[in-house]
Design a protein around this nucleic acid. Structure first.
Lengths: 215, 215
DNA sequence: CTGCATCCACTTTGATACTG
DNA sequence: CAGTATCAAAGTGGATGCAG
């Protein structure tokens, strides 16, 4: 028994025992956006010490949240991915991120915007009602990052990297660094984007990824 | 700059900077259930070192999540309570707790059930549709703990302690220690409760605090 | 190269004792 | 009641080493 346990029979305490340690939930955020290898995670979580990443991955694997996979043919090597239990953390991650957004100040330049956080913002702002019955695939390129949002019959998949199916519309934004969700939406509304594909899908994008009421 | 900061412009990272440290979110859980004094928190969070509680409360106050109040007339002394920003964490706490519940094993005896976690479970299982238009107040007494659930015109308030308004129905369960939400509901269904007030409100309670579909 | 393991300085935590 | 003081043990951050 480690000292990490709280000794309470309580869902919150259990959750904190499993994902409450430093960096753990950020690793989960990265893996929600896409399975990744060890070095991908090191890159996407600047500042994480390599031994800490190693330890967290072992703990998360032990907890049944993360699994090691052998990467398919061309790349080979280890791929870390979320298990079903790990995917179950999505709602909690999105809810925490929504609260955290209210606690964020202005975007200082120099502060990194993790592409995965924008992918999570797309999931959080996805408007189920507006997307009902829709099928469309977008790819968003900002600076050196690539994101996708694929809606299949009203169901969203979103993450970091090129779209898993051929995108209908590619949205490219010139920028020195990754932009936040809000900045991306602003760039779209100010027409500061290049498009490859049917332009009409741009307004669809805005409609589908604007949350219902306000906030 | 503390080393605690992740240096990312991301809601999740910000949230973790503010409430990601050990015990912090459990303190928030306690204060969601009721404002409390320092020694209440020490009692309700068995195992927390007093210096850690002291440090967390200062950090949470600094972050604008918790505020110190001077307790009113009879008791006097310091009362810790959540600010509006702190109350905003409710959704995140409930979502994390829901996930954590799926990761809980069987209730070993000896594991403590924090009364606040049952109060949170009432909030999480509250069925808005069933409660629409309803007004009723319940008080639940299990072992030495007292909880309340007050529904006013379909709106729920729930927490630890005696009901803030006179309860319509008092549900008393004989037990050696606090029971979980599931155990409380089972005791009610097995008729292992004593009632003070109109019995009909017991089935209303079950109806209102059973989540819609399953899970 | 990828995928870690090791080492060390420093911080945080846990446990307990003590004070205004 | 509401904390502070003290100290050992564990965890973190940063640099580097090294096998496949």
């Amino acid at each position: 028994m480690r000292r990490k346990e709280f000794g309470q029979y309580c869902g919150l305490a259990r959750a904190l025992e499993l994902i409450g340690e430093r960096w753990a939930l950020l690793v989960v955020r990265e893996l929600l956006a896409r399975p990744g290898r060890y070095t991908d995670l090191l890159e996407d979580l600047p500042g994480i010490p390599t031994n800490v990443l190693s330890t967290r991955l072992k703990e998360l694997e032990e907890a049944g949240i993360v699994e090691r996979r052998v990467a398919p043919a061309p790349q080979r090597g280890v791929l870390y991915a979320l298990t079903e239990a790990g995917e179950g953390l999505e709602a909690a991650v999105l809810t925490l991120a929504l609260w955290g957004n209210t606690q964020l100040g202005e975007h200082q330049d120099g502060e990194l915007v993790p592409p995965s956080s924008v992918a999570m913002a797309l999931r959080a702002t996805f408007n189920r009602d507006e997307a009902s019955g829709l099928t469309a695939a977008w790819e968003i390129r900002v600076a050196k990052a690539v994101l996708y949002a694929v809606v299949t019959d009203g169901q969203l998949r979103s993450g970091v990297g090129p779209a898993p199916t051929a995108p209908d519309l590619v949205i490219t934004i010139e920028a020195d660094a990754m932009l936040t969700y809000a900045e991306v939406m602003r760039a779209i509304k100010c027409d500061m984007v290049e498009l490859t594909g049917p332009q009409s899908l741009l307004s669809t994008f805005v409609r589908v990824f604007t949350p219902p009421a306000s906030a």
